[in-house]
Design a protein around this nucleic acid. Structure first.
Lengths: 181, 181
DNA sequence: CTGTCCATGTAATTGGTTACATGATTCC
DNA sequence: GGAATCATGTAACCAATTACATGGACAG
């Protein structure tokens, strides 16, 4: 999966592993994150499979960099991947729900404390999303290609925000239910 | 993670790997699923770590079964795990959002078709959740311990439903946005 | 006679996380 | 003097998926 995120970004412009890590952290990490170790190793694999090429650039007074460029084969692989629609809905993996599921025998006060902590964390996430949304419109007067991209980027942000709002509502209601026990 | 789901169920009663698979499929799979291969191998590991014990039961005219029972150590491990609250919010992994993020250059009709397909899948999920909720109240007149469990089970179901509703709303709105391009 | 249910496992591989490891520059 | 930024990698490990493998009972 991370392979296609890397191809997606390299399709815009050549980049180093480090740049890619920054790009991911500030955009797709909300729905798909990666550690630098995985990024570097995946890029190497992709080079072996001729999806990208790389040049090693010696710098003075700065660390050397390895710049990756997407190949025609890489573009094809990306187009092909986007070409066939996902045929299933993603299955959720939520550790907190596992914990809630088995929480009947726990001290309700402990459960409430945990949910309160989660509420704080999700409030922070929501606030972070809102910060990003404020920044995106600044690019409004750019070319139409970027404008098109922004529509789709915003859509992903939008889901992130609705998710956090939904989650916060659920946390509050669940806390009320537990208080009423 | 799957370890604690298995401990959680075995805390109710002794079970075989097969039973555990069925239990997971009909309950926690909405927020944490597992293949039978993982369940069987994890149970073996857990036995080595003395969290569970097993007895092999020879059956006639039915397949033999291996019944697992939780140990005192297993109970402790579960209590300890529940004891320390999660300190982070779970990070989402949504393949569809990766696809949407990089969909600006795709034919909008293809994107719309994909989202429509997703809508159908999520509608089915929501319908399935609603079916389950209808069945749970049947156990209303059971003992208070089970009743307490049900509160927490319902809470997880509730998040599942809200999630699907939110997702469907987002799909519809995103489709509208794309149609307007 | 075909498919589904019951029931259990192993093996291979991929994907992802955590830890280890280095080193210069710049800002406070 | 210390922390943060830039920049790249390897190694070990754990978790999870997919595929391989078997076989009787029973219902349609």
């Amino acid at each position: 999966m991370i392979k296609f995120i890397l191809l997606g970004f390299l399709n815009y412009q050549p980049m180093t592993g480090y740049d890619l890590k920054l790009s991911i952290d500030s955009s797709t990490s909300h729905f798909w994150h990666a550690h630098h170790s995985q990024i570097y190793t995946t890029l190497r694999q992709m080079e072996q499979n001729q999806l990208v090429t790389s040049v090693y650039i010696k710098e003075e007074s700065q660390p050397d960099r390895r710049v990756y460029t997407i190949t025609e084969g890489g573009r094809q692989a990306m187009t092909e991947w986007l070409g066939q629609s996902m045929a299933e809905a993603t299955q959720i993996k939520e550790e907190l729900l596992v914990r809630v599921f088995f929480s009947a025998r726990r001290d309700p006060q402990d459960v409430l404390a945990e949910l309160r902590l989660q509420r704080r964390l999700h409030q922070e996430k929501l606030a972070a999303y809102r910060q990003i949304t404020k920044k995106v419109p600044h690019m409004q007067h750019s070319n139409s290609e970027l404008l098109r991209d922004q529509v789709f980027w915003r859509a992903t942000l939008e889901l992130g925000m609705r998710y956090e709002e939904m989650y916060l509502g659920w946390l509050n209601d669940t806390m009320k239910t537990i208080e009423g026990l």
